[in-house]
């Protein structure tokens, strides 16, 4: 199990690196899809079909929004773009070096805490479900729902779901406010 997951994760990392260094935005978005759909297979292997269903639909909708709407509405002249790209790739300024140094410092910072956290963590696959003991044993009896994840989402952790619904509503209101070109007549 761990070997299969590692191979999938290596593929996802390669796709991510390609997406960041691709010259064209369309190919960057498509290789972003590699990471998302790889995550779907990871979820299926990790016994989480609920998450797999949500992730596959969400990834598809994100790609549709990005490719069909954003790239289509911001198309510029191809010739001009090629000229800009040649000009940009010809020189490396000091700001880029500074950015990479910032990334290295932050990476060391995160690595320190990751190193401390991984000592406390149980090895992969030997998780003791002491937090979820009550949910697993009493969940079906208390909530009456056969799907324990749904029981946790809507009964034990109802406040989380309420917050999520509120954030979704706020995001939609924000998008409607940002994208309005002129006031309502």
């Amino acid at each position: 199990m761990e070997i299969i997951l590692s191979i999938l994760l290596i593929f996802m990392i390669i796709g991510a690196i390609y997406a960041l260094f691709a010259k064209d935005l369309l190919s960057a978005l498509i290789s972003c899809g590699i990471v998302g759909y790889g995550l779907v297979i990871c979820f299926l292997l990790l016994r989480a079909p609920d998450l797999a269903i949500v992730q596959v639909v969400v990834e598809t909708i994100t790609l549709i929004i990005m490719v069909a709407v954003v790239l289509d509405s911001t198309r510029e002249d191809l010739k001009e773009r090629i000229m800009i790209r040649e000009k940009e790739s010809s020189y490396i300024n000091t700001k880029y070096v500074f950015n990479v140094l910032t990334v290295l410092v932050l990476a060391l910072f995160f690595l320190f805490f990751f190193n401390q956290a991984i000592d406390k963590l149980e090895p992969f696959g030997t998780h003791t479900t002491r937090m979820a003991e009550a949910y697993i044993e009493n969940g079906a009896r208390v909530t009456g729902s056969a799907n324990l994840v749904t029981g946790v989402v809507f009964d034990f952790r109802g406040y989380d779901t309420l917050g999520e619904a509120t954030i979704l509503f706020t995001a939609v209101v924000g998008i409607l406010a940002i994208l309005r070109l002129r006031g309502k007549t």
């Binding site: 609920d50 994100t62 779901t161 999520e164 954030i167 924000g174 940002i178």
Partner: peptide, 28 residues
């Protein structure tokens, strides 16, 4: 398998989509 992280991630995925769409709106 532990159902608690799955329930937390389930809400987090949909939030991720909505915040992504909002960032795209700002970008265009």
């Amino acid at each position: 398998v532990d159902p608690l992280p799955q329930a937390l991630v389930l809400t987090s995925i949909v939030i991720g989509l909505s915040t992504n769409a909002m960032l795209l709106a700002v970008a265009i």
